[in-house]
Every structure is written in C-alpha cells, then in structure tokens.
C-alpha cells in the first residue's frame, strides 16, 4: 500500500516537472500566455488593494466625525464663550474648538487661495464656528453612534446663537456609497477577467492538445487511460496559473509602489498619517491560489472537451 502510494506520488511528481520542462522548451510563448493571465489578474487585484486602502482612510475619518456649529453673525465673542462653557459641560461632548470670525477668514484665505478676492469685500462674510467633537463616537456600534450623533445635532441646533448645526458626515456617507459602487464594480470586473483567464488557459491547452495529437493517439493505442493523458495537461494549466499569478503579483506590487509616493503626498496634505499598504499575505495567497485554480479549471475544461475527440482510427 505504501509502496503503491510512493509510486503514485512519484509518478505525479515526474509529470509535474515534466510538464514544466515541456513549457520551458518554448519560454517565449509560455511567458506570453502567463503575461496575459498576469495582466488580467493584476487589474482586479490592484483595484481591490486600492479599495482596501481607501477603507482604512475612511475608517480614520469615521472616528473623526465632527459637528460644526455656525454661529449667527450677530454673536459676539463673549456670547460665544458662554456657549462654549455650556457645551463643555455636556457629557456627550468630548472637545470643543472655537474658530472666531477673524480666524475663519484667515484660515480661508490661507487654504482657498482667494485671499485677494476677499480683500475686496468690506465685511467679513464668514461666521464664527464652534467645532464640536462628540464623545459618543468612541463607543457603541456604528448605527447607534450615528443615531446619537444626530440627536446631539438636534440639541445643538436648538441652542441660542447657533445658526446652523452641521454634521460633517454627509460626505462620508457619500464616500461609502461610492466605495460600495466601486467594490461591486471590482467584483464584476474580477468575474469577467477570471472568465477571460479561464478561456485563455483553455485555448492554450486546446492548442497544446492538438499539437500533441499523435502522441495522444499512440498513448491511447498502448493502453494509456484518460487520466494518464489528462495529467500533463492539467499540470500545464497549473504552471500557467502559477506563473500568471506571480506576474500579476509583480505587476500589482510595482504599480502600487509607483503610485504610493504621490498618494502619500496627497494624504499628508490632508494631515493624515496614512501609509499605503501594498499587498498583504492574505491577498497574495488569494491571488496565487485563485490563479492556480483558474489555470487548473481552464485546462480541465479544454481536456474534458477535446481529449475524447482524439481516438485512434
């Protein structure tokens, strides 16, 4: 039994490396096919990783949900300070930051680049703002958090001197729905490109089968089973999948490394301590495993379809 297992494993191992050797005989066409697979797989993988990075960024933003209280323009600084002491006493509020009208104007000039245009205005058009950091966002689930935050917004809206209480969450919600659209897009794209890989491998194996038609006939004549004939083609599919996956991995890593510099510069301009993650172990495993599986499945389809057609006559 053990002996039989040994020969069985040995035979598989032989075919495993034999099929690799066969591929290496024509390295150029092997590389071409693998590159097609690699490019097809690199696209969804790259998008997936970018999406993952976007989620970490938006996660940071999520915890930084703030409520901006725009004060009525008639409010004086002392009145504003009264309101601030009142707010600080509220348990739902973690931190309060006051931006006076002058400060708001200075900041706006600095950030917007409209400084000269603003000089033309006689009066400061900007209201004073109190930025409120809710303390409730630290605990509890996301939904209960957003409910509580909305309740707080309503309370703050009712305070004196407050013109508008605005929760800076709207754009996060929009970002989430945009990301949801992109995520689905990536899934659809992945599905289509996986199908493409399947067809590329299937077609390549089909050609390999036709090229070795005589050999298959001879093997059938001297008593080779379908499994015996199928094996080298399946392993060829495996190798295509593996090399395609490795090429995809290389493409993803090098493209993201190229992108990571500008992206980090961009996020730093938002004062975010974001560092781009290129590809993690799990994604690597998924990519390689997936591409090997696609290679095997593609060759299986081709072999099942075409091996039966070849019979000695």
């Amino acid at each position: 039994m053990i002996n039989w297992m040994q020969t069985y494993l040995l035979r598989h191992l032989q075919v495993f490396f034999y099929s690799l050797g066969q591929l290496m005989r024509s390295p150029f066409s092997m590389l071409m096919t693998s590159a097609v697979i690699g490019i097809a797989l690199a696209l969804p993988t790259g998008l997936h990783i970018i999406l993952k990075n976007m989620q970490t960024i938006s996660g940071d933003i999520d915890s930084a949900a703030q409520i901006s209280l725009f004060l009525k323009k008639s409010t004086s600084d002392t009145q504003a300070q009264q309101l601030i002491t009142q707010l600080k006493a509220m348990p739902q509020i973690n931190n309060v930051q006051y931006v006076s009208r002058q400060q708001a104007l200075a900041e706006f000039k600095r950030l917007s680049g409209f400084g000269d245009a603003l000089k033309a205005l006689e009066k400061n058009p900007l209201p004073a703002v109190i930025v409120v950091q809710p303390s409730i966002s630290q605990a509890g689930g996301a939904i209960s958090n957003s409910r509580a935050t909305e309740l707080l917004v309503e309370q703050l809206q009712a305070k004196p001197y407050v013109d508008i209480a605005q929760l800076d969450m709207q754009w996060i919600k929009r970002l989430y729905s945009i990301m949801d659209i992109i995520r689905r897009g990536v899934i659809i794209l992945s599905g289509l490109l996986a199908l493409a890989v399947l067809l590329v491998v299937g077609n390549t194996i089909r050609l390999a089968i036709q090229n070795r038609r005589d050999e298959i006939v001879i093997i059938k004549l001297i008593g080779g089973t379908d499994r015996f004939i199928r094996r080298p083609f399946l392993y060829t599919g495996f190798w295509y999948g593996l090399f395609g996956g490795l090429i995809a991995l290389f493409l993803v890593i090098s493209s993201l490394l190229l992108l990571s510099g500008p992206i980090e510069a961009l996020t730093q301009s938002y004062e975010s301590e974001f560092s781009m993650q290129i590809i993690d172990f799990n994604s690597t495993l998924w990519l390689l495993g997936g591409s090997i599986l696609l290679g095997l499945a593609g060759s299986w389809l081709a072999v099942e379809r075409h091996l039966r057609e070849i019979e000695p006559t």
Partner: peptide, 15 residues
C-alpha cells in the same frame, strides 16, 4: 485501456 495493455500492437508506420 486495460484491455489494450494485454494486446501488443505493431504498426506499419511504427507509431
């Protein structure tokens, strides 16, 4: 295939 393993075949074009 198992039947053919018991039958040795020789062809004009050698195969």
């Amino acid at each position: 295939p198992f039947h053919r393993r018991n039958v040795g075949m020789i062809f004009q074009d050698h195969q």
